[in-house]
């Protein structure tokens, strides 16, 4: 039961929230479900890794690899998948909480929440950057190996 409420339900909510965003970004067809699944997957990884800065980093890596793979599979731009799948991880709560602490005059809490927010944003950025670059390198070398093999077999 705890597994359902702590992991599965939040992921279902993340999926549905991404669905809302896919309407806003005018996404259609199968792409919608892929992007929403990516969002849920990312949130699951984030929860499993402990909901902190490293967790955001790993979630961004998983989302990046998943989106790049799906984009290659369907021959369509990766942009939409990454944009929508990363949205649940964007630290909106951090911006809000740091503002609330700033208003309350609690400088030390304000600074620590602000730094944490910036850290999560940076982790997302670096994570998605690393995963896409890695994926492209591995994928293109795999493609080259495949061509090489098919040429060799033709000979």
């Amino acid at each position: 039961m705890t597994v359902v409420t702590t992991y599965l339900l939040p992921c279902l909510w993340a999926f549905l929230a991404c669905l809302g965003f896919s309407i806003i970004f005018n996404m259609r067809g199968l792409s919608v479900w892929i992007a929403c699944f990516g969002g849920a997957l990312g949130w699951l990884v984030y929860l499993l890794c402990g909901s902190d800065i490293p967790a955001a980093f790993f979630a961004a890596i998983v989302i990046g690899v998943f989106s790049e793979f799906m984009a290659r599979l369907r021959h369509c731009p990766v942009t939409g998948y990454v944009l929508i799948s990363l949205l649940p991880l964007v630290p909106g709560g951090g911006i809000y909480r740091s503002m609330a602490f700033a208003l309350a005059g609690d400088t030390s809490k304000f600074l620590s929440v602000l730094l944490n927010t910036l850290g999560i944003a940076a982790a997302l950025a670096v994570g998605s950057m690393v995963s896409s670059s890695l994926f492209r390198t591995v994928y293109s070398s795999m493609q080259r190996a495949k061509e090489h093999r098919s040429q060799a077999s033709r000979r």
């Binding site: 939040p10 929230a17 909106g92």
Partner: peptide
Amino acid sequence: GYGLAPMFFTAM
């Protein structure tokens, strides 16, 4: 869409 997104983020 504008309603669904915040609704489920709040739930999440």
